[in-house]
Amino acid sequence: MISINIYRYNPEKDQFPYMQTYKFEQPKRDIMVLELLNQLKEKDPTISYRRSCREGVCGSDGMNINGKNGLACITPLSSVH
């Protein structure tokens, strides 16, 4: 199992943003960070993020991943874990 911390904030309920930890089974093949988020969202549909082309062209899923800015769809999990 690997742990993923996701920055969460629901302005209707939360006074401040916070980190939420999710456990995730280590995938057998290397996947992109976006695919990891998609799989986590299937379990917790309240997770929200932007995404569109999923191939590194449109720029929607720009995010801060382990302190570095990048596109989740072209960032392999192996490069950050």
Partner: peptide, 11 residues
Amino acid sequence: KVFPTRSHTVS
């Protein structure tokens, strides 16, 4: 539904 330059034409 997305910022316009993120539409699929971009691909």
